[in-house]
Simulated scan of single mutants.
Amino acid sequence: MATERETQADRQLCGLVKDLASQIEAHLRARAATLGLTASQGTALRELSHPMTLRELAERMSCEPSNITFVADRLEGQGYLERHPHPEDRRAKQLILTPKGVELRDRLLELLSKDSPLAPLAPEEQDVLQHLLTRALIR
């Protein structure tokens, strides 16, 4: 059974992770807004590093594919992405950024890198944090 000290340390660590996630979300929301995007649209653009299906994007955004449909529809309507037939699965469509979408994604990534909640960490420290969080998530 966990000791009181272990329980308290676990609770503190969970609080820190939650606070960092909240700061990252607020940072994304603010930067996306400067480009006329919602937080969900900003997250989708950040994650669309290559062509992917709605399901793949939903997994990366930790939500249901049905929720991503609206976001993809808006981005498509704004000319930032297109749906193309999947080359290997005729039932699926791939989301592919248009040149206008690539340009917007690049601008968003640049904005996100400025004053990031992770900026106080040196690149090596960010690598260590990524490694530790990845280990914690793998079960």
Rank of each mutant, 00 (worst) to 15 (best):
M1W: 08
E4K: 11
E4P: 06
A9K: 15
A9T: 14
D10A: 07
D10K: 11
D10R: 08
R11P: 04
Q12A: 09
L13I: 08
L13P: 03
G15I: 01
G15R: 05
L16G: 07
L16K: 15
V17Q: 13
D19Q: 07
L20W: 07
L20N: 08
Q23M: 13
I24W: 06
E25D: 13
A26K: 11
L28H: 05
L28E: 00
L28D: 01
L28S: 02
R31N: 01
R31W: 03
A32F: 02
A33V: 01
A33D: 01
T34P: 04
T34V: 11
L35Y: 05
G36M: 08
T38S: 07
Q41E: 12
G42Y: 00
G42F: 02
T43P: 03
A44Q: 01
E47I: 09
L48A: 05
L48V: 05
S49V: 12
P51A: 04
P51W: 00
M52E: 02
M52A: 06
M52T: 03
T53H: 01
L54A: 10
L54D: 03
L54T: 15
L54V: 12
L54W: 02
R55Y: 08
R55W: 14
R55V: 14
E56M: 12
L57M: 07
A58P: 00
A58M: 00
E59G: 09
E59H: 09
E59V: 06
R60S: 07
R60E: 07
R60D: 03
M61E: 03
M61A: 15
S62I: 14
S62Q: 09
S66D: 12
S66L: 10
S66K: 12
N67E: 11
N67D: 11
I68R: 00
I68T: 05
F70L: 08
D73C: 11
R74W: 06
L75E: 02
L75M: 10
L75Y: 02
Q78K: 15
Q78F: 11
Q78S: 11
Q78R: 15
Y80P: 02
Y80A: 05
L81P: 04
E82K: 06
H84R: 15
H84F: 13
P85D: 04
H86S: 07
H86P: 01
P87L: 05
R90D: 11
R91Y: 04
A92M: 02
A92N: 00
A92F: 04
K93P: 05
K93Q: 11
Q94L: 15
T98V: 14
T98A: 10
P99Y: 10
G101Q: 02
G101R: 00
R105G: 09
D106I: 14
D106F: 08
D106H: 13
R107M: 12
L108N: 00
L108W: 03
L108G: 00
L109V: 13
L109I: 12
L109N: 15
E110T: 13
L111S: 09
L112C: 05
S113D: 13
K114D: 00
D115Y: 00
S116F: 00
S116W: 01
S116A: 06
P117W: 04
P117M: 07
L118I: 11
L118D: 03
P120V: 15
P120K: 12
L121S: 10
L121M: 12
L121H: 09
A122L: 08
P123S: 14
E124P: 04
E124M: 10
E125W: 04
Q126N: 09
Q126H: 13
D127Q: 15
H131D: 03
H131R: 10
L132I: 12
L133I: 05
R135M: 11
A136I: 02
L137R: 13
R139N: 09
